[in-house]
Design a protein around this nucleic acid. Structure first.
Length: 452
DNA sequence: TCTGGGGTCCTAGGACCC
DNA sequence: TCTGGGGTCCTAGGACCC
């Protein structure tokens, strides 16, 4: 009875919003400089030194150690522009090793999972934990414990932000990393903050550091005299809705303490899958482009099958470098409606080739190609071709499916690409440049033993 | 010489229909 | 010369995230 009244009052107070009445504290646990930290676990010499990890093809800087940040190296900076600088400051440079990071990520999540009631993995290096019924003191103790356990069991340092909404938990986490008040502890808990405390905190955070506000929006907001998280939280609702759409409005509400970005405990099935990559060197021939496309389609089809989906639409795209100009520049894409939904690699490759032939133009230096599937549906729900001919014939479908299962198992156990479609090319001279790749310590015994 | 890859959501605007 | 209003569906493109 009493809680009903309180609930009604609460709802009234926050303007008719119909969310969960009893708010749940949320922790955001975020690995510090994740890729760099992973490299450090297996290479202790990297501790205390400036370290960067590069994107595919060793193109840009995508992760930096604290020391590298202090040198002024920026996220996304092209390496070739800073070659001399990197050398001069003896910065350790590593190619990205996603196999390693993926398995380290799993270890981190597995360490946190038993410590919290529900965990929502949000990205390779972050997770939200939903902590109903935890008192503020319990929250602090839990955060400290998570940090200690993850560090002990995986060697990865993490920071924890605690708050009543996801957006505020992200913000608290950001403070836990940067603000001298919480930096040493690595935990920032704002669940007990008064409105005034929170306002003061928000006023110290630039609006582009708010989750959901990117560079473009930040520029726009600055233009309208909104510089901090506090300014955004206090902008008029209608103005926000009109200029930042519903997503920006949700962000503002969350900054005010209203939970409106829900938990996503079971990740929804993907609606599209992309496989695309820039080449290690420019490609001009249709033959090599075809190899690349076959390779990407194979990876994509693998992902498709691993989530037990079939695709009904396939898109192929190719383009020259973004930095090519005038007549050297070309990009094109084609969308193909598949005769029937499928996850069968040879069929997808055949369709992709047809598309590629239509958009390919000789005489260009292609820098990148990609394939994408959409219109995904569950493999069980797929509509069979009632006439029982061609690809839709149930017996053929079943045989193809079995074949793919075998291929997937072999590739999983023996390493990716053990069995590949013949046209993917054996040498793949256009493949990725990864000159400074660390070993696959967590997934290959042979490579771990090599260094020890 | 060299500038990542893989996703989602939202909106505006065109096509089409009555 | 004149050329509605409102609905739906689809797509392209922009913005965001990591």
């Amino acid at each position: 009875m009493c809680s009903k009244i309180v609930g009604a009052l609460l709802r009234f107070r926050i303007g008719g919003w119909e969310g969960s009445m009893v708010q749940t504290p949320i922790a955001l646990i975020d690995c510090n400089n994740f890729y760099v930290s992973c490299e450090r676990v297996f290479n202790p010499k990297l501790h205390g030194r400036p370290v960067v990890v590069l994107s595919n093809n060793d193109g840009c800087i995508i992760a930096r150690s604290k020391e590298a940040k202090e040198l002024g190296l920026k996220m996304g900076e092209p390496v070739f522009k800073r070659r001399d600088f990197l050398k001069e400051h003896r910065v350790e440079i590593w190619s990205s090793n996603y196999t390693l990071y993926g398995s380290m990520s799993q270890r981190v999540m597995q360490t946190i999972e038993p410590l919290v009631p529900t965990l929502e993995q949000y990205s390779i290096d972050e997770a939200f934990a939903w902590l109903p019924g935890f008192s503020p003191a319990e929250l602090d103790a839990l955060a400290v414990k998570i940090r200690a356990m993850v560090n002990r069991d995986t060697g990865i340092p993490v920071s924890v932000g605690l708050a009543w909404t996801k957006t505020l938990a992200k913000l608290a986490n950001h403070r836990a990393k940067k603000d001298p008040r919480w930096k040493d502890l690595g935990v920032c808990n704002v669940t007990e903050f008064t409105r005034a405390d929170l306002d003061a905190l928000l006023a110290g955070v630039e609006v582009e550091d708010v989750w959901g506000i990117g560079r473009r929006r930040a520029e726009f907001l600055n233009h309208h005299d909104i510089f901090t998280a506090y300014d955004l939280a206090n902008a008029p609702d209608r103005w926000i809705l009109k200029n930042l759409t519903i997503t920006g409005y949700r962000t503002a509400l969350e900054l005010r303490g209203q939970q409106c970005i829900p938990a996503e405990l079971t990740p929804p099935a993907k609606k599209s899958i992309i496989s695309s990559k820039a080449f290690g060197r420019p490609i001009e021939t249709l033959e090599e482009l075809s190899q690349a496309v076959a390779t990407y389609v194979s990876r994509l089809a693998e992902k498709l099958r691993s989530q037990h989906s079939v695709a009904s639409v396939l898109e192929v795209f190719i383009h020259t470098s973004h930095f090519a100009e005038g007549k050297d520049r070309y990009s094109n894409a084609i969308t193909i409606k598949l005769p029937q939904p499928t996850a069968y690699t040879p069929e997808l490759v055949a369709q992709a080739y047809k598309g590629l032939e239509k958009i390919y133009r000789p005489g260009y230096k292609y820098a990148k190609a990609g394939v994408m599937v959409m219109g995904l549906q569950s493999e069980n729900a797929r509509q069979l071709n009632l006439w029982g001919n061609g690809e839709g014939d149930p017996a053929t479908l079943e045989r193809n499916k079995k074949l793919m299962e075998v291929v997937d198992i072999i590739n999983e156990q023996m390493g990716r690409g053990t069995i590949a479609i013949g046209t993917a090319g054996l040498k793949q001279e256009w493949g990725m440049r990864r000159e400074k790749l660390s070993k696959r310590f967590t997934t290959r015994w042979d490579e771990l033993l090599e260094v020890s």
